[in-house]
Write a protein that binds this DNA or RNA. Structure first.
Lengths: 251, 251
DNA sequence: GTACATTGCGTCATAATAACACATTAAGCG
DNA sequence: CGCTTAATGTGTTATTATGACGCAATGTAC
């Protein structure tokens, strides 16, 4: 949430915000990009508002690009949150006080907000967390060690992860979360981390191979302890095709 | 969209609406509840606005109850639509003209709207379509014969059906769309209609039975041509359990 | 009664999944 | 160097799920 909006709030869709759950993968951890708010001892999801002349998807892309410094990100809307009590009088007061919002602009911040949740999958190494103001800090945090969040942001984060888990069965992932070349154990670890469940190495290999989106390289990973694993890349064309048509048909 | 809102628009969340895709099943057809608008030769999804003191889910439930006359409906938020160009100047003018909205209230109708889509599954025979104004008419229409809809309502409807198809693999359905007692061919026809695909009778029986949510009755359907089929009921307890835990695990 | 459409219940071949065995590779270390 | 260790690569097997059918039973129409 930026302060600048106080000056030209009439250019934004009233009472509507965007919140992004940005996932990255590093050190065998599923990480979430979170912002330490300057006005309270809590963290928040990166978010923003919707300019009147922008699609909501575009507004979400903007948040994402601004916060990670990279473009062409995997981004998906997953839910909209609009309980009345998600708006918190105490929170509003703290924010208004901290940013010293002038009286006439307070109406913007004290109105009821509905927020649209997006989740994104990004390459941890390519994304460089960007501060918006000097007062805040922005960090990758292990999804298992998320601190206290403002408002209903914990609920939003949980729903994003739940959605990601379900969509893991409907589409391939990894292209957006892993570096270009990666090993099978790395890909497996990604799945295990998201699902919070151990998978059998050999069955995983067979199943992921059957999807037909991987190309095995001749190359092997170097500088590793023990036996060097093969390197793989995604076959982007087939990957996109499966992404479009879906995996399990079911019926 | 009601006219009454023009008088007290300050009690509603600005620029936000709810649209409901209400599905029913009858005569082997998947039907959608649509409203013939009085102001244009097009149809629309039943919708409404969000009172400032109501959760968005509650606002959706209200639309649904008002339009079908029944409660305890299966209702699920599936997406939010917020392209800039979904707002249509020509459409606004027609609506303003038709309802003779006074000048000072026009601002409400000409603002940019973002709409939250919900889909509902209801028992066709129990739901009684309710008009809101005398000028409009409300009807069940076969989803394959949907007439031209206002704004982006066709896109919303399509997305609802697409979501329903995907969720068919993740949860059981039917409890909300069929009468209490039903036959296996009826249930199968429901699946076939939603998926727009023929299924093998015998494989369908086996698969649906394996889910373990059906109780077979001694009773048989009467007054039917040819061999009388068995009647079934859902085991509500097991049904709700599967609904909660999901079907296909995948990984 | 017979023809016919539909239902109930079964089989069989194939594919997908879960559980597990064993050889291979490279680093660390005496 | 040879041994240990901890990973990886490549299988096998039993079980289960799925897809494609066969056939007898039932109730209506004639």
């Amino acid at each position: 949430m930026s302060k600048g909006i106080a000056e030209n709030s009439e250019n934004y869709q009233p009472g509507l915000s965007i919140d992004c759950v940005i996932f990255g993968f590093h050190d065998n951890q599923l990480k979430v990009l979170l912002i330490k708010t300057p006005y309270e001892d809590k963290w928040s999801l990166p978010g923003g508002f919707v300019p009147l002349d922008q699609d909501i998807d575009t507004a979400a892309v903007t948040v994402l690009n601004d916060r990670t410094g990279i473009e062409g990100i995997f981004l998906r809307q997953f839910a909209t949150f609009g309980r009345v009590k998600r708006n918190d009088k105490h929170f509003e007061e703290v924010v208004l006080e901290h940013f010293k919002i002038p009286e006439k602009a307070r109406k913007w911040f004290t109105q009821r907000f509905v927020t649209i949740g997006y989740y994104a999958l990004v390459d941890f190494l390519k994304a460089i967390p960007q501060k918006e103001t000097s007062g805040e800090s922005i960090e990758w945090i292990d999804h298992k060690e998320v601190p206290e969040l403002i408002l209903d942001h914990k609920e939003i984060l949980d729903k994003a992860l739940q959605t990601l888990r379900i969509e893991l069965n409907l589409m391939p992932i990894g292209y957006n979360l892993l570096p270009e070349k990666f090993t099978m154990p790395e890909l497996q670890k990604l799945y295990e981390t998201i699902l919070d469940k151990k998978l059998d190495r050999r069955n995983f290999l067979r199943k992921i191979n059957n999807i037909g989106i991987l190309n095995k390289l001749e190359e092997k990973k170097s500088n590793v302890a023990h036996k060097a694993p093969n390197l793989y890349v995604f076959d982007k064309e087939k990957y996109d095709e499966v992404l479009k048509n879906g995996l399990n048909q079911g019926w």
